[in-house]
Design a protein around this nucleic acid. Sequence first.
DNA 1: TTGAAAGCGGTACCAC
DNA 2: GTGGTACCGCTTTCAA
Lengths: 346, 346
Amino acid sequence: MKKNKKPESTIVDIARELGISAATVSRALNDHPKISKRTKERVSQKALELGYRRNQLASSLRNSRTFTVGMIVPRISMFFHAEVISGVQNLLHRKGYNLIICQSNDSDEIEKELAATLYSSRVDGVLVASTLYTTDYSHFDVFVEKGIPLVFYDRVPVDPYPAQLVEGDEYRGGYLAGEHLAQMGCTRIAAIFGLLSCSLYRGRLKGFKDALTAYKLEADESRIYFHELTHENALKTLEILFSTKPYPDGLFTANDTSALAMLDFARQRGIRIPEDLKLVGYSNDPRAASVTPSITTIDQFPGEVAIQVVDALGRLLENRTKSILEEPRTVVTPVALIKRQSTNPQ
Amino acid sequence: MKKNKKPESTIVDIARELGISAATVSRALNDHPKISKRTKERVSQKALELGYRRNQLASSLRNSRTFTVGMIVPRISMFFHAEVISGVQNLLHRKGYNLIICQSNDSDEIEKELAATLYSSRVDGVLVASTLYTTDYSHFDVFVEKGIPLVFYDRVPVDPYPAQLVEGDEYRGGYLAGEHLAQMGCTRIAAIFGLLSCSLYRGRLKGFKDALTAYKLEADESRIYFHELTHENALKTLEILFSTKPYPDGLFTANDTSALAMLDFARQRGIRIPEDLKLVGYSNDPRAASVTPSITTIDQFPGEVAIQVVDALGRLLENRTKSILEEPRTVVTPVALIKRQSTNPQ
DNA sequence: TTGAAAGCGGTACCAC
DNA sequence: GTGGTACCGCTTTCAA
């Protein structure tokens, strides 16, 4: 099988064939107002004929615009992130932007490296959901310094950082969960959160505590655990929680994976849900709806997050060309309590 | 807030400050063997000092290599694809490649447009899981003609196309499903497949039929349905399937979403699973494991698919630089039957 | 071991 | 309405 690579054709080729200048071809292809209709037609005709396709690299180099956005997430396959990425990609595509996707695998080392790569690629903007462990955000400084639009979402810097933020309403999510458990009559409410180095869990914890206080149930610190929210970790914690009576009668887990672990644990130990224990998760993972009992959880509306993220980015991209200044701003996206069987005693 | 964009520094800046030529700086940064150690040190020192970061655009334009791979999938958030993308991104990152991710939303129009965009971006290679409706693959011809590595996976061209293919073992998946239902004693086996315009369902159908034949159960065409595999469509079909007795006692659905629909339908109609009907899905969606009864399904090992895809691409990328020819080849990735409660009568 | 200069493909300013 | 030309930042051949 012979490999006969067709050569790439350039505007110069078109120009030569048509006996006009490359400048004119460029203008024609960009629908410049001062180029005659006839020339435009001849050019686009010839472009088609030669199979010409713009070399975006050359164009970007010249214009300092790549029409490419970089995105860093912890893991692409996490339900919430997959949904956000999907939404973001669709919205960006409509605006004519490409999306370079990177995952940090929750390693701040990798995150750092990815930031450097994205900068090298001269992306027009960057979207970041940082790792659980990022406390030093200085690897993003380069974008701030160069005025490159930077939007953090979901997991955002805890300390002030000069970039746009799109956060879920974590406080409200935590509050709704705590309130719901209280309203359903729980009095010994336990909770499992992720590490407080991450913005997410700070807000959820605060909301949760405030809700208990509001319902005259003081949050029992000894029943609140903090660790990476994996299935295994959850099982270990549950083992402890259910080692001494009185057992908790309510549990809030800051993700659905941990809530699913509780279901497994309950089955194994003969704990009835919701009769003996009421359970609330977080994220509205599809599995939460399909298990029996289905799990009450907090929806984060990833589609809405995507909209807000792209919106914030869009404003920055426009302002950049108009060189208007934009103050760092925080957008808060809604959450909602999805009531299901795990808290419903009938 | 003042916007004091730091200017980008280039190799020319470094050269000027050091009183050497840009050529030398370039070579030093690329660790060229003939540059003195001392010069290299001075250069990298100064680069750090000036906050220099390579402009990958300029480099790519010059070298005709972008170290960027484009990927087109139907929907990023579909479980299987999210997993593959995740794997692919991690593997490509190790090889020093970026990943531009695009979704066709199962529209062949969009797919066409995306192919053009990726070509314009001069990606070094392209990975595609095409739409359910793509029959004309000519929008990918440009990659073939220009010798740009092209790998189809999962949903691959049905007719011969000169590109690398990574396919799941659809035939075996269908066979395993049919065989399992037969072995569990089903005699009136129904099935729901996607449209046969898509490579996936052709293979699954054939395997399924062959299995039934092997077990002396002729596949009853009137119990086999073909349509887009959504929850709603499945419910409609089930309504028909369960409108006249004798009801089916086994059902194979070519995705898990449809199997989940069957569960809903069964609950609503008082059909007991697995007692009255045994059910097998496809994909090993996380929900299939968590529902009650849990659903027997076919695992597609997305991680393995990712490995094979990147492997095929990697070979092409290398061969391209060595300009060795590579014949179109098909890699088949394994599938496995995951037995669960929906087919287990105890 | 290093420098000068051409050029990757396209764009935009300045002329005519 | 169109052409000439410099230039975006980096690489590489050729020469020294």
